[in-house]
Write a protein that binds this DNA or RNA. Structure first.
Length: 222
DNA sequence: ATCCGGGAAC
DNA sequence: GTTCCGGGAT
């Protein structure tokens, strides 16, 4: 084992197999999903994206052209629909007007520079920025989310009080900056936390990380 | 009836 | 710490 983060990755990969995220047909669809899934279960995002597909609004220009009220209606299942509609059209407007609708152009260049530019956009916080960079831009920026914090706190590798950047730095300082590795690792963390390391009723006995998890061992011992 | 979602802005 | 919001699970 090169280090604990590798060890955990391999245990998860052995159990769940290759996941090949993100579930989307185009890079811009990844961006839409990244906004829509903010504090929202993916199941609800799928319905919203299906509505956008039905309305042929999964490209920057067509999304931007939708009347705000219609867009709000289409993405309603994903919750927070007013702010998400505003943020999505704000992003689409910048993409269309400053980059000619070319997402790859927006995501090209110095990684930290592009990340900073994304973070300056309305409705783009650190997780959304990293998800866009990694899954839409294939840039090696590790994605941290509530699942990551919960899982690694239970594993004893975090105290639980660390901020986003500190957690991202932990992963980026201890793993090679490879897009495929970051892609799979985040996807595996999400699957692990949906399946076993749930918030309310974790399922520790069958968890693939039980052998290296102090939380799970104490839970099983009860 | 409450809780929780692949957060972000204020 | 609050607000923004819907939909399935408990």
């Amino acid at each position: 084992m090169k280090n604990k983060l590798y060890d955990i990755f391999h245990r998860l990969a052995a159990h769940f197999g290759p996941l090949h995220w993100w579930p989307a047909e185009t890079p811009f669809e990844v961006v839409i999903g990244a906004f829509l899934t903010q504090n929202t279960a993916w199941r609800n995002v799928e319905q919203a994206i299906a509505n956008l597909r039905q309305a042929s609004a999964l490209e920057p220009a067509s999304l931007l052209a939708l009347p705000r009220g219609l867009l709000e209606t289409l993405i309603r299942p994903a919750g927070f629909f007013r702010q998400k509609a505003e943020n999505l059209q704000s992003f689409a407007e910048i993409l269309c007007h400053r980059y000619g609708g070319d997402l790859a152009a927006l995501l090209a260049g110095d990684l930290d520079g592009v990340r900073g530019a994304l973070l300056s956009l309305r409705g783009v916080g650190p997780e959304t920025a990293d998800a866009i960079l990694l899954y839409a831009g294939k840039r090696p920026s590790f994605v941290v989310d509530a699942y990551t914090r919960r899982l690694f706190t239970r594993l004893g590798l975090l105290k639980g009080s660390e901020g986003y950047e500190a957690i991202r730095t932990l992963f980026m300082d201890n793993l090679p900056h490879e897009v495929d590795l970051f892609n799979e690792y985040h996807a595996l963390i999400v699957e692990e936390c949906k399946t076993f390391c749930r918030k309310g009723a974790p399922s520790c006995p069958p968890c693939p990380l039980l052998a290296c998890c102090p939380y799970g061992q104490s839970a099983v011992a009860l």
